[in-house]
Design a protein around this nucleic acid. Sequence first.
DNA 1: TAGTTAAATTGAAACGTTTCAATTAATTTC
DNA 2: GAAATTAATTGAAACGTTTCAATTTAACTA
Lengths: 318, 318
Amino acid sequence: MSTIKDVAKVAGCSISTVSYALNNDKRIPDITADRIKKIASEIGYFPSAAARNLKKRNTDTVLVAISDFGGPVYHELLDGIHFQLAKSGYTMIVSTGISSNNLLKERSADGAVITDIHISDQSLIQLAKNFRPIIVLDRRLKDTNIYNMTIDNHKAMYCLTKDILSKGYFKIGYVHGVKDTYDNQTRYSGFLAALQEKGIKVFREYYGNFTKPSGIMIGAELLKDSNLPDMLVCANDEMALGIMETLQKNGKIIPSDIGISGFDDIDLSSYVNPQLSSIKVNHFEWGKTIALTLIKLLKEEEVDIHKQEGIIMIRGSY
Amino acid sequence: MSTIKDVAKVAGCSISTVSYALNNDKRIPDITADRIKKIASEIGYFPSAAARNLKKRNTDTVLVAISDFGGPVYHELLDGIHFQLAKSGYTMIVSTGISSNNLLKERSADGAVITDIHISDQSLIQLAKNFRPIIVLDRRLKDTNIYNMTIDNHKAMYCLTKDILSKGYFKIGYVHGVKDTYDNQTRYSGFLAALQEKGIKVFREYYGNFTKPSGIMIGAELLKDSNLPDMLVCANDEMALGIMETLQKNGKIIPSDIGISGFDDIDLSSYVNPQLSSIKVNHFEWGKTIALTLIKLLKEEEVDIHKQEGIIMIRGSY
DNA sequence: TAGTTAAATTGAAACGTTTCAATTAATTTC
DNA sequence: GAAATTAATTGAAACGTTTCAATTTAACTA
């Protein structure tokens, strides 16, 4: 491993000159800077991140902590964040589980975007103290260094439900995701708001956990019921898809027997038959916005945190 | 930000004692070690990764570099790698694009797993010189510090094709992915081997690029053809799905008009109708194996690089 | 040409750890 | 109770950079 010292030796100059040259400091004339850069690349020198980070007390790196790599919603979001970050000269790393904790507390990044249900508010607040800006995507949380950016679930679900009501549905059931999550609560409240406006009561409520298997369970439960709702509003697509599959397998026709809607607009939702009505978020754009906000925060500029709007996708399922 | 110095001051001992205590060095008696640890946690001290990495000349971190976050095959692989790495006390970071390059050359990790088509063999060889072990997943490449671990494409495709032949298919077409990639070449060669064994010639070849849109194009091309193959072996699922969708939309019945098979067994493949026959790899297990191998490499232990077997999933599409 | 100013270069400290080698304290041995 | 052994603690160097402040060199001025 060659170090800056080796470069200096070959170039016959001091370490500081090499450092300045490599960092394009204007005090080094172009001609020498070029010569030094050439030598550096010839002997295969790359600065050590560890040394630079230690001295500069920053890393030019942003951490994105996610729950796991499996979720269908993340991909575009990550690509969007990375796109913007790279454009602005930052390096992005993504991690899960225990790795996220390690990276956070040992300050391996200058800032972070977090959407990991496994990190408690508690420990997040604790970590954020030592850390620099953290944007949380999956919860409402306000504290030193913590900012939240969320999808406007309430509004989107409110609009979707209004559309459903305008189609004449009346016996409307609601399928919950994990009860006390931000997503579940805000989606449910949007749903309720639309119903209340029309003076309609929820026909029945079901409780899942955002996964397809939980949808399948609920589907089975529904089949036993003689008095079915005519419409099922689900807190996300995965549950809706599980329910739909179960109902269809047992001879129910969607949407004539029962309508259904989801939230997230995952890929699969436009592959099933009928296609699932849902709420889509342009996650790539959303990712870019998040990254831009974090960058401002890192530069200690003023930011205006805004919510991302969902786009209602009405398809064949109701 | 509190440093080790602060801990030492509060504890009324030297920096070295704190360091030894925090690292569970047996020369510090338990009683003082516990006291020091308690103080450290009270004042919210966490060691700086930068300083530790610099001094120790390693990071206990593994980098996984991927092409982008969108590919349907990666998730389980990443989760598998992370599972094993975490279990062994390593931190895992994943990155794409330019970020991967930065992290690699500045030695922000001790080792890496790479499956990023955008990093050229050339630059990989260059980077690996300064680096520690790199496992590449998406190509055959042997050089200092570079090891490759791959799916046994040839064998899997050979077996699948034999099964197809045993069902009496005869006019068999092959759909290529990106021409000179490892996956394409080895899958194709397995396909050919099975045909040759029976003395059968390929009926026709088509050229895609592993994406669904390219499958759709090929589907359109096929529709113009009066003399269709009776079976289409595709280099991956995404193309197969694109072709299938296009053919079905235009009234062709699968598998009676034409059979089709894929490779990878992505989620979608068991959602379409008929379900797509494909080759599945247990990516979670595969990820664990990869991580285990890399860990051995990091410890400079002997490793035996082996190929991962594919599992043939025969479903309704032929 | 000497004096002044500007340009280019450099020495050295600092960032926060780890760890070697040395010192000090405590315990054992005879 | 002195010598020897072991246990506990510590000072200081080193890891590879960046950057301040100072020095050296070059370029102008009058």
